[in-house]
Design a protein around this nucleic acid. Structure first.
Length: 123
DNA sequence: AACGTGACGATGG
DNA sequence: TCCATCGCCACGT
């Protein structure tokens, strides 16, 4: 674990997804698919859970290319803001999808990420 | 091989 | 909070 990874994220790291037998993109999509309705995660958080602590941009790339059949709208940046620039899946669409499942989103696309953040290891 | 470009993240002002 | 800057990583040209 390098110093660039915030300590509070260590908690989220799990090996349950990473068998080493599947492609990175499959692992990422499985993780995204495991996020419950009404919860969100950051790109970097998903990357960490997938075993790639500095792979936030990679997660964004994978969702952009392959995320159509996943709840891609539950992924936001770690500042708590919707940050898609995809023309097919716009920020406005993401906002509506999140609001639909009970997540409060401001007109500036801001979300209280710590309130809604998915925490797989906490019950 | 060298850049430019992102659905990113942390930090400092 | 906003913004610039830097680090990071995979792709495309």
């Amino acid at each position: 674990m390098t110093a660039s990874v915030p300590l509070q994220w260590v908690f989220y790291q799990t090996s349950r997804y990473n068998t080493g037998m599947s492609k990175i993109s499959d692992t990422v999509l499985n993780i995204v698919g495991s996020i419950p309705k009404g919860k969100v995660a950051s790109y970097g958080q998903v990357a960490l859970m997938a075993g790639f602590p500095r792979g936030a941009r990679r997660v964004g790339w994978i969702l952009h290319q392959l995320g159509d059949n996943s709840p891609w709208w539950r992924i936001i940046n770690n500042s708590g803001r919707i940050s898609t620039s995809c023309l097919e899946h716009t920020a406005l669409l993401q906002k509506e999808l999140l609001i639909n499942e009970g997540v409060r989103v401001t007109n500036k696309l801001k979300i209280d990420i710590e309130k809604y953040r998915y925490r797989p290891n906490s019950n």
